[in-house]
């Protein structure tokens, strides 16, 4: 006997990767045993690498959205290094690595080539880490946005230069210890700034689509990739991908840490079209930032001194501001 009723997600909802109760057509890409595995086994990413996971999530979703008609430009960085050491490649997509700073521009070139060749079915993704995106690659990224080139740029943000040994980037969060912001002296760790918010800067280019996502919310990420691939013009997706090595968290806690970043409000998940915010992922179980910070040794110095506790309070204020600004908890919900 089959149920005459529409499926309801009482058990795990859409939070798990799969849901055997759902019709196959609406299940996640990652639950499909025939998924592309755009980043194949045998890559040399560290144990529990959030970036490896995020890249497979995103590209598999994109491959499904465009029926495999995809080319990818990749910036230098962990993702590139761990996936393509001669003589082995982990990629199962048409993929090109040029330089650290130019993935967006290479993407532009690819898109121009496809257009001029009349191969409008072939779509372009450019991708890189936070260093290659928010720092060194920023000019090319902004240029690509401004021209509204037909490229989806995906930034896998692990909040520092991990490939070179965990140095600070302008995506490194306030107070975090890195190799170039050591936890010593009167102001240990990174400056207490808000960082460079590239999603908001992307929105300021009034491009068709900007979104943030996290490896902690697969369905949200896949939906956004799918949506992005159905739009033409410049698009930007910023994916939060914890790095167990650089953040000093347990290798098994990658997704958990990402989840707490979102649930604390430190990493707001939202989407915007033509410069206007059109959607946000509401916080389900709000947590104080401590719960997020304490899992990571890059913040451990904050919990050892009174001054450190004051910095935690500042970080909490950043989270609170995000929550208010993006409307991440329902009106009237307890703070």
């Amino acid at each position: 006997m089959t149920s005459p009723l529409p499926i309801k997600f009482y058990q795990t909802g859409t939070f798990t990767v799969g849901n055997r109760l759902l019709d196959v057509s609406v299940r996640s890409v990652q639950s499909d045993s025939q998924r592309n595995n755009s980043l194949n086994s045998g890559h040399r990413a560290c144990q529990g690498c959030g970036e490896a996971l995020g890249a497979r999530y995103a590209l598999d979703a994109a491959m499904r959205a465009v029926n495999g008609r995809l080319v990818v430009a990749n910036a230098t960085g962990c993702l590139e290094v761990f996936s393509t050491p001669y003589p082995e490649s982990s990629w199962r997509v048409a993929w090109l690595h040029s330089l650290f700073a130019n993935a967006a521009a290479v993407g532009t070139g690819m898109a121009a080539a496809m257009k001029v060749k009349g191969r409008t079915d072939v779509r372009v993704i450019a991708q890189g880490g936070d260093g290659g995106t928010v720092d060194i690659g920023f000019a090319c990224l902004s240029g690509m946005f401004e021209r509204n080139d037909d490229v989806l740029y995906i930034c896998y943000d692990n909040e520092a230069y991990m490939n070179t040994g965990v140095q600070r980037s302008s995506a490194t969060p306030a107070g975090a210890r890195t190799a170039t912001t050591p936890a010593v002296g009167e102001a240990p760790g990174n400056v207490m700034n808000q960082g460079k918010n590239v999603p908001l800067i992307a929105m300021a280019h009034f491009i068709p689509y900007v979104a943030t996502a996290s490896v902690a919310d697969l369905r949200d990420l896949e939906t956004k990739v799918d949506k992005a691939m159905r739009v033409h013009g410049a698009r930007y997706l910023h994916v939060h991908v914890p790095c167990p090595l650089g953040w000093g968290c347990d290798t098994g806690d990658t997704i958990k840490v990402a989840r707490l970043a979102a649930e604390s409000g430190l990493y707001p998940i939202f989407e915007a079209e033509y410069g206007e915010i059109t959607g946000r992922r509401m916080i389900r179980k709000r947590v104080p930032v401590d719960e997020y910070l304490k899992l990571q040794s890059r913040f451990s110095h904050l919990f050892k001194t009174t001054e450190g506790r004051a910095r935690v309070a500042q970080i909490q204020a950043i989270a609170d501001r995000n929550i208010a600004r993006f409307g991440l908890v329902p009106e009237g919900a307890p703070a």
Partner: peptide
């Protein structure tokens, strides 16, 4: 469907999905 399936795989695909490798 409210059952949590405590301690026994109910094929939610999480392990299949979250493995970076």
């Amino acid at each position: 469907r409210r059952c949590l399936s405590c301690g026994n795989c109910f094929e939610c695909d999480n392990c299949f999905g979250v493995c970076p490798d």
